[in-house]
Nucleic acid binder design. Structure first.
Lengths: 129, 129
DNA sequence: CTTGACCTTCCAGTTACAGGAACCTTTATC
DNA sequence: GATAAAGGTTCCTGTAACTGGAAGGTCAAG
């Protein structure tokens, strides 16, 4: 099947699939006589795998490691778990940072009357710290 | 004062200050005879303002808008509040997305025994969806 | 045979900088 | 005064993960 079919089935875009190929995340697709990329069911499976992993916030680099483990029949599940746990930690830190920002902003927004007057606690805060 | 002093006082790096100048976020600094950038206390104030806003997650574009409002004596606090509220919404969406990822990953990690064996619920999940 | 929908490659743009090269100035030291 | 270290300058490249678009080949339908 051609790339737009593969895109539709995998949930990725054609652009993204080409990008993954060019960046080495996936192997070069086989080509038709005219030079069109040609995908098999097995390829779609891989593409879906990547799509799912990206949805869970894994980096492309992580995806590459996960795919490699996926293909490795001798893998240790501990290696997979370690990648996932690292990722959970990263996510947790991001959440913490965002919640801190949000808390501060909400406090500031509450103090700002938000009308026609120039008086603004938000700008004051930005200006003073 | 020169750029490294300005960097130290504002909490930004010299690289970042030059970048902000080149991208139009701040006005070009005045120069010494030798061509060195020269900063005043007022400049430091602006740089700190930006640093604080960036710490709160505002984009550089947002910072430009906030600075413009900051300089505008005729501003309506409602305009500032609107930018902040938009930003809070963005942050909230990011937090929601990250928490969803984290929840899913935690469930998967819990199911994975994480030992030498290849059997791995995490890879299974990535593979099946 | 033409039209439109695909496909291809390649280049630029996005965000917010960091790293580094090549080169000039200032300051401190000998 | 010579020199070396420290700091300044500009300019180019790289980062992450794509997206948009140009120029041009291909395929299926009417």
């Amino acid at each position: 099947m051609n790339i737009s079919k593969a895109a539709a089935l995998s949930g990725l875009t054609a652009k993204t699939i080409r990008y993954y190929e060019s960046s080495g995340l996936i192997a070069p697709a086989s080509r038709s006589a005219a030079g069109y990329r040609d995908y098999s069911e097995a390829d779609i499976h891989i593409l879906k795998f990547i799509h799912r992993a990206r949805d869970l916030g894994f980096s492309v680099k992580d995806c590459k490691a996960l795919l490699s483990l996926y293909h490795d029949r001798q893998r240790a599940s501990a290696d997979v778990k370690a990648i996932a746990e690292d990722h959970i930690n990263e996510i947790s830190h991001k959440i913490d940072a965002l919640q801190a920002m949000k808390g501060t902003l909400q406090t500031l927004v509450q103090k700002c009357h938000g009308d026609d007057r120039p008086d603004c606690p938000i700008l004051e805060d930005l200006s003073l710290k």
